[in-house]
């Protein structure tokens, strides 16, 4: 994992309650409660600023717009991604947990299904995040992109799973029960 040249920080500026949009050319990025707040990096220290920068770049290079929401009342990735999909004008969303686990979801699919799932957070780097953004944007345009190749490191589990559980417990403590999703504006600044 190569560190970015300059350290960037991400802040999420609250805009208001997240609304369902009607514009068909958008992807919603839905993030978990601790994302860019309690935590600032994924499990393998990719800064959240870099994650969002890459995902946005991937979406924009397809000529699609992005909107970001913070989901407060759950830390379940499928629920977060599906919430994003239901708010999205195109019906396509990218769900992100603080530790990096990512999912591309579509409104019409069952909640526990998905278009693409990247379950192994320790293997997700900047390049993968960019390709995830790009693929989500292509789904939003009604295209059928080749799925981002799934990386598979069978030894990530013994090394990282218990730490991931610990991070998830901390993420869980950031849940605000009953709070509806909030639209946020990502502000990336150089520290």
């Amino acid at each position: 994992m190569s560190a970015p040249a300059a350290v960037r920080t991400l802040t999420l500026k609250e805009i208001g309650p997240a609304q369902r949009a009607s514009r068909p050319d958008e992807v919603v990025i839905a993030v978990s409660p601790a994302f860019a707040e309690t935590f600032t990096r994924t499990i393998v220290d990719v800064p959240h600023a870099e994650v969002i920068r890459q995902v946005l770049a991937g979406i924009e290079e397809q000529g699609v717009t992005a909107r970001m929401v913070k989901v407060w009342d759950t830390a379940d990735l499928a629920a977060i991604a599906h919430t994003g999909a239901r708010l999205s004008g195109s019906g396509i969303s990218i769900g992100l947990l603080s530790r990096g686990t990512t999912m591309i979801h579509q409104r019409d699919l069952p909640r526990l299904s998905n278009l693409e799932l990247f379950p192994q957070s320790p293997l997700l780097d900047a390049e993968v995040f960019r390709r995830i953004g790009s693929n989500a944007a292509q789904y939003a345009k009604g295209e059928s992109p080749a799925p981002v190749p799934t990386r598979n490191d069978q030894m990530a589990r013994p090394r990282w799973q218990a730490k991931a559980a610990l991070l998830h417990l901390k993420e869980f403590e950031c849940i605000v029960a009953g709070r509806r999703p909030v639209e946020v504006e990502p502000v990336i600044s150089r520290a």
Binding site: M155, P158, R159, W160, Q161, A162, K163, A165, L166, L169
Partner: peptide, 14 residues
């Protein structure tokens, strides 16, 4: 030593 080990946190079920 590449395996991960964590401390118990019984209050949270760990």
């Amino acid at each position: 030593n590449l395996d991960g080990f964590v401390e118990e946190w019984p209050e949270k079920g760990l």
